[in-house]
Design a protein around this nucleic acid. Structure first.
Lengths: 147, 147
DNA sequence: TGTGAAACGGTTACAGC
DNA sequence: GCTGTAACCGTTTCACA
């Protein structure tokens, strides 16, 4: 991934539907050359895909929370991934430093829904403790930047 | 935002570069009708934009952390937003329940970089305490789902 | 909302650096 | 390896019904 690729990625982060012509013009490449580079980055997994940025409230997901999860004994990353991916309301999970084993991002349609999901997660085999912070308001979110 | 719009959004979440023709075919609409609906959703802010999903490691952002931030006294959401948006490494911030005032997502190029950024945040006027969990590994992340 | 036509962009093949 | 040009084809985008 060279400097040109990074410029292309930067452009795509800002506008995921930009045409190859547009991007090419911005970085000094022809449209086909730009497309080839994007294709290669997709093949290599550097670009995982493209998506729309949706206001969660518009979809009815107005309640979200971050949950720190502790398991009894040791737990593998694979196991965590499997356990948590099973909940569609979990839109992200990471292993973290500190007391807990994982940090989990849950989105739900209401506080009751959120409670139901977190209870479900807590009921997973060997899950020991959890610490939940509920999101009151989204201040901002933005994609990765090129720096 | 009716059922058709939700179907369109669902499609765009899965493939942000899908053609209007494709989407239209999937939801039973012509391409122009699909485009008009997408345009309207963009105008209403329900679709905030489109972006590429990039592997952070490919861009050199292999260190990230979640930081809970507490201010001295009360602090407005506007103030939090202004303070935190100033750091390009902060890619998301939310007000939360519990002791802290905000939860902040920081991405950095290295542990040293992360430390530098968090020190910068801690040096913001009236910032009192912080609690950082460093992300060891990304288990998964995925866009919002239609349910 | 759909249809049709014109403009535009995507994609491939090929040639050149 | 990489690129650009050119041609073809599909898509977007408009006017209009």
């Amino acid at each position: 991934m060279d400097a040109l690729d990074r410029q292309i990625v930067d452009h795509l982060l800002r506008d995921g539907r930009a045409t190859f012509q547009e991007i090419g013009k911005a970085v000094g490449l022809s449209a086909p050359a730009t497309k080839r580079r994007v294709d290669r980055m997709r093949e290599r997994g550097e670009i995982a895909g493209f998506t729309a940025l949706i206001d969660p409230a518009a979809l009815g997901w107005d309640t979200s929370a971050y949950v720190e999860l502790s398991y009894q004994g040791n737990v593998s990353a694979d196991r965590l991934k499997r356990d948590l991916e099973a909940f569609p309301e979990v839109i992200g999970a990471w292993t973290i430093t500190g007391d807990a084993d994982a940090l989990v991002h849950v989105v739900a349609a209401s506080m009751a829904d959120l409670e139901r999901v977190i209870e479900g997660i807590r009921a997973v085999e060997q899950v020991d403790r959890s610490r939940t912070v509920v999101v009151m308001s989204r201040l901002f979110e933005r994609p990765l930047h090129g720096k």
